[in-house]
């Protein structure tokens, strides 16, 4: 690239560079003409002081003071933004919800297992494929959300949002680390006791879980392995409710204990589901009956679907509980700071 020979050529090059970043409108052209005249007037004033023509290098100091072409163009040009300050908080919230609360769990808990099944139960390939799919999905979703909000920005949607605001419909204030309701904990304790007693009675009274089908069905051997862990989890839930009642000032305890219990339950569900069929088997007397075989099959599939659904729901619940716990931890840490810093 050749160097400019004189200040005039330098200014022309500068204006060309600024013009590149400006919209091609009559108004912008006029602004550019005024800017050019301003710069040339500055050069003339300096030349008058010097008593001689300036060199291109000397004139470049004036252009440097003016600023880089892109920066000058941003000041001269119209104020443009894809999503304005009014809509941006909502856009950011929706983007986080879509990407991290919907897309990531869907890919981990639905797409991942599907890829695992399609890749001959190879975890490595499934993880790689899911990760690749997740990246594409994240970018596409982010693009769609951004496009929607860019359209909303241009249709003055924020004016409609502002008009709809009614102070009387604002939600009630959430206290940080609100103590759990004592009534709720007592109910949990009572039902927990009933649940534990029911579990303890099941081995001797299978009708409590199988109903009339207990006449020709009984629990498969898989339940012998998991009966004690299930009892222990039930007892753990009881202990958790009792401790929450006894120590209500330990605001951190209920969410942490709930999360720990959910994780243990998920691990147990994993083991149960790996054990697979059957969950119930026919009694000796009913083994030859076609009708009872069909009923047993239906019960087994129902239990499998229920457990799989519970696994999925618990997985999502754990992610949400973990997020809430982290949010609460940040709030509790801030609550421990001086009042002047809490507004940040």
């Amino acid at each position: 690239m050749s160097k400019p020979k004189n200040p005039t050529e330098l200014v022309d090059r500068y204006l060309q560079a600024v013009r590149f970043w400006l919209p091609k409108t009559q108004q912008q052209e006029e602004l550019l003409t005024e800017l050019g005249d301003d710069l040339r007037s500055q050069i003339e004033a300096e030349e008058e002081e010097l008593g001689r023509p300036m060199t291109a290098e000397e004139a470049s100091a004036i252009l440097k003071r003016c600023g880089a072409p892109m920066v000058v163009a941003s000041r001269l040009g119209p104020k443009q933004y894809l999503i304005g300050p009014a809509l941006f908080p909502i856009y950011w919230f929706v983007l986080k919800m879509v990407l991290f609360w919907i897309l990531v769990p869907v890919f981990i808990f639905i797409v991942g297992p599907a890829n695992w099944a399609n890749n001959g139960k190879d975890w490595g390939m499934a993880a790689l494929q899911t990760f690749g799919d997740l990246w594409s999905g994240l970018f596409i979703a982010a693009g769609i959300v951004t496009l929607v909000f860019a359209i909303l920005e241009r249709t003055s949607a924020q004016a409609a949002i502002a008009c709809k605001f009614d102070p009387l419909t604002l939600p009630s204030v959430q206290r940080i680390g609100r103590k759990p309701s004592a009534l709720k904990t007592v109910c949990q304790l009572i039902f927990g006791v009933f649940g534990l007693v029911w579990l303890l009675l099941i081995p001797n009274y299978p009708v409590l879980i199988l109903g009339p089908a207990a006449a020709f069905l009984h629990a498969a051997p898989v339940w012998h392995k998991f009966y004690i862990p299930i009892l222990l989890l039930s007892a753990l839930s009881l202990a958790r409710s009792g401790f929450t009642l006894a120590k209500p000032q330990w605001e951190w305890f209920p969410p942490v204990a709930e999360l720990v219990q959910a994780v243990f339950t998920l691990i147990l569900l994993n083991f149960i589901l790996e054990g697979w069929f059957p969950f119930v088997v026919l009694t000796e007397a009913a083994k030859n009956s076609v009708q009872y075989i069909k009923v047993a099959a239906i019960v087994n599939v129902s239990i499998l679907l229920s457990l799989a659904g519970a696994w999925l729901g618990l997985s999502i619940a754990i992610v949400i509980q973990l997020w809430q716990l982290m949010t609460n931890l940040r709030k509790w840490r801030r609550a421990g700071q001086p009042a002047s810093l809490q507004a940040q």
Partner: peptide, 26 residues
Amino acid sequence: YGYTLRKALADDGLVIDEGTLYPLLR
């Protein structure tokens, strides 16, 4: 015009750059 206006403001102690003045005038 733009340059003399900027110079007059600067001489009176109010410096304003080109990128601010011309859009303001518009």
